[in-house]
Amino acid sequence: MRRETLLNIVLFALLPATALAAWMLDEPFIITLATKAAILALAGVGLNIALGLGGLISFGHAAFFGLGGYAMGILASHAQSYAPLMESPFLIEGTKSMPVIWLVAIVTSALAALAIGALSLRTSGVYFIMVTLAFGQMLFYFTISWPAYGGEDGLSIYVRNGFPGLNTLDPLTFFGVAFAVLALVLWGAGRLAKSAFGLALSAARQNPERVETVGLAPYRLRLVAFVISGAITGLAGALFADLNRFVSPTMFSWQTSGEIMVFVILGGVGRLFGPVAGAALFILLEHVLGGLSEFWHIYLGLILLLVVLFARGGIVGTIAGREVAHD
């Protein structure tokens, strides 16, 4: 068995093992931390498709994370106040059903990614970074100044949304839901990386001229990648909002974009399980270092610096060695 495969199995088992152990020890807070890690990993898996496979340094993925969050917040707040979203030309009511909320989050963030990507992918390099950042900030300031859904204060949802047949109020059950979504998306992302699309997208990152010469358009490949990437991060946003039962403009902030990028870089850019390792380490550091000092971000910055300088493949790259792109 390849070393990376083995490592992936360990990483995959880590979160449910932690959650189960915490459940047996009756530590619901640790289950919540494991759930948070799974959801943030999901956001990272989304970004990793654009960043790792496509080489698109998006500094605006908070836009999709936030849209997913607000899709949940808006639908659930209308459901809890029994006020429909709109009555004409047709009636749209709020909902407390996770599958419906997820679908809305995915579609909304995919459409936003299509619009943002269509414009920003006409630029490259530092301009691409700045344009994606600008779109994220636009949404951030929009939600701050939009009073209908809480403005700066955000929106609280009193009871976690439901999933047919499950009691999502139970921490372990909600962890199971989040982890199942992560597992499904990881499986899909793994297939994507090895598919014809993955081969062409990654080639467009390595050498766009080569891809054009065989008659494939890098712009189209990247746009599709950006849409898939945004949709996954949007789904993660909806779950994150459900975990906290709260959404606020912070989800749209550039710090959020930066954090999602940190998961990917810490774990290993372009590695399927990189964001899982990165998000888990991030949560761990947040709580171990955060307990020691209020200024734990300094240590996080130091670790990130060391990873970027000395361990370019992140956690996964350092342990598993050079990548075998397709096998």
């Binding site: 994507l192 081969l199 891809v211 008659g215 397709h326």
Partner: peptide, 22 residues
């Protein structure tokens, strides 16, 4: 893989997302 890329281009596109190309 480089040559596969050419074969994909000749086939007319790479918008296949699920089946392993190898």
């Amino acid at each position: 893989q480089n040559v596969m890329l050419g074969a994909l281009g000749h086939e007319g596109g790479a918008m296949r997302f699920f089946r392993p190309v190898m």
